[in-house]
Write a protein that binds this DNA or RNA. Structure first.
Lengths: 156, 156
DNA sequence: GCTTGACCTCAAGCGTACTTGAGGTTGTTG
DNA sequence: CAACAACCTCAAGTACGCTTGAGGTCAAGC
């Protein structure tokens, strides 16, 4: 039924690291920050439930989207901490992320279209250029730094 | 011909800050890092050529794309430092940036499609999921951190 | 039983992109 | 001419997301 390589045992730090691409030090960091959790053996070594594979991968994928760890944590916090999340749990998270992604793509496409316009018109007139007008950039409400993405608040 | 509000005088730090949305401290930082330049008055105060408006705005827009300052600097270094860039100069830069943008949009769209697939299939099998397989993510050549975007090397 | 590698903790360090603060100068304006 | 905002320099601090190092433990193989 199940391929044996799917496994069912807990994972050592080294295994989780190798299979997710995250450094062991990063796993420690994620745990310290509450993004993942582990059980300890008698010898005080970490053992990870297999669903941590998914959590860590989710973290990494989300980071590729430019989402800060605190937002990823907020999303993961909606999953059960003490047992493996259900399919529905992951589906909900994924759907939320897909929205983020859609928004991000829209944003970039608008940026691209504006940039194309600027190339077309030469756009030596800053006054009329959306890209080069700070109070206009991506609907920015004013000057000053802001996050690339709005805070992730999935199904709260 | 030219609207008077287009201006032709140099800008003070405060003016440049207000018109680009970058903090004065950020302007100092950009100058220290060689991304912008200024002339000094007799009293040692900075005066910015008007094309610095465009440089700073370019910096900020590029950052919205997730491009690191060193890559932005590399791009700006292809512009003349001692005189205002020509329309062709900016056009070339913008075109290079548009490529970055297109690539980034493609990347995100692939990610979105994969994510949609994962939602569709439930994707509790990590083995078959592109998103959750680190050696596959976005064509990653292996585990370990990597930059979201390839280095910007515009028309070098 | 000893070596070896994987593991442990905790503190410090690093790169990016700035901001903040101290202490002092400039320049405009009433 | 005094006040006051805006400017100056330089050093240190901040936030994020980790990595590195020191000093020690655990577990498997020879």
């Amino acid at each position: 039924m199940e391929k044996p390589d799917s496994g069912h045992k807990e994972l050592t730090p080294g295994e989780l690291s190798e299979r997710t691409g995250a450094a062991v030090s990063a796993l420690h960091f994620y745990e310290k920050e509450g993004l993942i959790s582990s059980r300890r053996t008698g010898g005080n070594q970490r053992r990870y439930r297999r669903d941590m594979l998914r959590r860590v991968s989710f973290i990494r994928v989300s980071q590729q989207l430019g989402i800060p760890l605190r937002d990823i944590k907020a999303a993961l916090d909606t999953l059960p901490q003490d047992k493996a999340p259900t399919k529905a749990d992951w589906k909900r998270l994924s759907a939320g992320w897909r929205e983020q992604l859609d928004a991000r793509i829209d944003q970039l496409q608008r940026l691209r279209d504006d940039l194309t316009g600027c190339i077309g018109c030469g756009c030596l007139s800053l006054r009329s250029c959306k890209l080069y007008n700070p109070s206009d950039i991506l609907g920015d409400a004013g000057p000053g730094p802001r996050r690339l993405l709005p805070p992730a608040r999935p199904a709260d």
